[in-house]
Amino acid sequence: MLIINEDDLQTIFANCSREYPNEACGILAGSPGVVEQVYAMTNARPGLASYEMDPEEQFRVMKAIRRSGLGIVGIYHSHPSGPAYPSGIDVERAYWPGTLFPNFPDAAYMIVSLAHPSNPAARTFAISDGQISEVELIVRQA
């Protein structure tokens, strides 16, 4: 289960729409299962139907999250024309290269589909032990 405020979800949707037709990406910081802060990140490889967070920005944000006493509870990215479901590459990159060790075992992977650009759809998944399982996304109204 991942709980997110409606405002934060709208921030994510706005980021994904702004980056369209490229993939947008970001980090969700919070306490276990609860998003408290959204970090929209720079996609260092836009235009390739893929994303890779800018490494220095990622490092800086991860450090800031650690220092604020929060953890990485989610990682989001958009599929500009694909479904809100992890691609093969999403799954592969969720693990340490050449292993089935999840890179961020406490993070859920949120995918925002812009297949219908005026109506973005978000779903959230756990990617571990070689499996993809949906994580319930609970949107808290303000």
Binding site: E23, M41, R45, L48, A49, P55, H79, S87, D90
Partner: peptide, 16 residues
């Protein structure tokens, strides 16, 4: 020294 996995993915559109 910090060792950090890149956060990356994607490729759905290309496959589709």
């Amino acid at each position: 020294i910090s060792i950090v996995p890149a956060i990356a993915g994607g490729g759905y559109n290309r496959r589709v």
